[in-house]
């Protein structure tokens, strides 16, 4: 599954950046620490639903839906009832 499927209250682990991701986007995602084994969770959702602020490596990084779909994740814990 990709990052857009993550719900508030869940914690996920990043698996990889998906095939087909434009080179520039991939570079920037990696630079921001979207690497395998990094933990990620949703901190805030913008009032209009997009972008979303994720907590990763103890900082808040906002991504648009279009870019978040390139990040492959696996849910580690939590439920989506929050």
């Amino acid at each position: 599954m990709d990052l857009t499927a993550l719900h508030k209250g869940q914690i996920a682990e990043i698996k990889c950046i998906k095939e087909g991701c434009p080179y520039e986007v991939k570079q920037r995602l990696l630079d921001l620490g979207f690497v395998a084994e990094a933990n990620i969770r949703i901190q805030n959702i913008s009032p209009l639903g997009d972008p979303i602020a994720y907590e990763i490596h103890r900082t808040l990084i906002c991504l648009r839906h279009d870019d978040a779909r390139y990040v492959q994740i696996e849910i580690k814990e939590g439920n989506d009832n929050e």
Binding site: R28, L32, P51, L60
Partner: peptide, 8 residues
């Protein structure tokens, strides 16, 4: 619109 990232 190009790749958008913003650190809060």
């Amino acid at each position: 619109s190009s790749f958008f990232t913003l650190e809060l």
